[in-house]
Design a protein around this nucleic acid. Sequence first.
RNA 1: GCCCUCGUAGCUCAGUUGGAUAGAGCAACGGAUUUCUAAUCCGUCGGUCGCAGGUUCGAAUCCUGCCGGGGGCGCCA
Length: 626
Amino acid sequence: MIGASMSATNDPIEILSRRFIDAIRGAFPEAGEGVDPLIRPCGQPELGDFQCNVAMALAKRLGKKPRDVAGAIAAAVDLSGVAHPLTEGAIAGPGFINIRLLGDALAASLAAMDDAHLGVAPAAQPERVVVDLMGVNLAKQMHVGHLRSPLIGDAIARTFARLGHTVIRQNHLGDWGLPIAMVTARLVRLEAAGKIDLNTLTLDQLDEAYRAAQMECQRDTAGLEAVRRFGLGPKAEAELEAQVEGATEAFMEARRTLVALQAKEPKTYAVWQRVRDVTMRVCMDVCARLHVDVTDEHSAGESFYADELAGVVGDLVTRGIAEESDGALIVRLDDPRWGDIETPCLIRKRDGGYLYATTDVAAIRHRVQRLHADRIVYCIDARQALHLRQVFGVSLKAGYAANPMTGRDAVMRHAAFGSVLGEDGRPFKTRSGESVRLSDLLEETVVRAQKTVKERSPDQPEEESRRIAEAVGMAAIKYADLSNDRVKDYVFSFDRMLAFEGNTGPYLLYALVRTRSILRKAAAAGVGDSWRRVPPGVNEPAEKMLALTLLRYPAALAGVADALEPHRLCQYLFELSGVFGTFFDQCPVLQSEGAVRDGRLRLCWLTGRVLEDGLTVLGIPLLERM
RNA sequence: GCCCUCGUAGCUCAGUUGGAUAGAGCAACGGAUUUCUAAUCCGUCGGUCGCAGGUUCGAAUCCUGCCGGGGGCGCCA
């Protein structure tokens, strides 16, 4: 369990678990140690607050009737000071034991949660967690396809950090190799011809140059063959011959440029550096606007590992990990220890070139041997699943994944995600079939958000509505992505993510804003802050529901870390916002008096704190009013 | 051909790692407003959990086989 649990003293599930473990020990000594009493929030609030599901499983092991086992446990358990005594009606169905908490105990648990950590105990064994997120390519405009990795990766990184682990973010840039050399070669040529000015170079120009470079290096040998075979005439043949010749020349130039880059030849390297700077500037701007915590210092791309590839491959050959096959070098992984993968991993081509698998293996070696990672999380497209399994397998087989500090293999996991689809169910594109620039997408979201903000609050100054729209827009776009099970594709829809009804980012912000509003008004009315120290209200059904939901926060966070699924936290925060909405509707705060009012103020305060904390873990910006 | 992945209400999606009568949101319909921000709340309608077997007290969840969508399979990254 990588996720933290609530500190044992205040979580009702922990308290109940201990009581039931004692009861099981007393009633069934033969059950042995380490029995999980399976305490869960009760599915039906009318039956209880929590339920114990252990009787059925235990009965099977002991060869007894489930209801008899449940009865024995119920008779043996001591719930004094925690929950109401169990009556006969508490045992239901095949052997569920329904538990009703004492109001005082519930209020006390909640009050205990109102500490600096919101009940989230720092990890007992902090790990060093490397999170691989993003991975943009040089000289290419960022588009929708680049959205999910940083959003999901950042949310996962923030979750681990929140739980007390040390997080190291890594932006695995596609900044090396022949494709980059092709662009660089083209830019060198264009600049020499005075056709471009590197000082004013934009990413759009780079994007165009990238495509042009791809085109001019691509030899149409297949076309030439076809022309010859079908005898389409000397003119067509001559044209294609010229194309192939030109492409071959461009290709050779790119290869020379790659060699120059590897040697860090000053002129060529400077151009490459410029390409990198222009690309990264835009990338960092997008990250900043998205509130994704990735900066230049997290960059460690292909160029970073370029000098290590020969050493890695040499090591693998020397130690017999890699073997030759058809002139290339491969690593066999068809063994359960390495993942039981039929397809071998290719790490060096017949022509001596390295592949992206080679770089990824070098990256794992670096991350574990030098950064001392205990865990590496890859937030990468689901299509890379096989590739990553292979890379993990090679690293294990080579011993690169063995952490030198602990001697244990780093836990390597792929947080795979699906595609962003348009409303037609096909990959998200513009009407003309172009991919949508990420910066355009963000701007359109904010513009749409501002339109609605203005409709709601026409009197707001322009600056204020723009500021609110910015947060609402980012909340909308991020929540829409994070709230889906990451492994599935999802349909991108401005209308749905910005419709401020239902399961959306703006809805959560609205819930937060309402908690703030009440506390602001209380302060303005001179209520003081003595309510900070009174027990939270848990008498009304809506209060109680809110209290029970608040207590689930630490478990929700832990679930995200265990499953690498931020949507679990989204689901939780949405439920919390919902029960707060009901509470808000049914339990007047400022119109109440005395202990009732104070207890409700404290519930608002706690709800606000949990929403604030949870939204921050998701990387969603906060608002005081909207 | 082999491997991975998805299939739940008209639409978009959850389902706490095998628990009780499968839940939300949207859409549709009805209700609540002297607003602690109605960007809200309450209710009604809506299901062969792709299909068929199997495992057991109990399956949307696990195992097998099909059907359908998407993706991947040694010299691109």
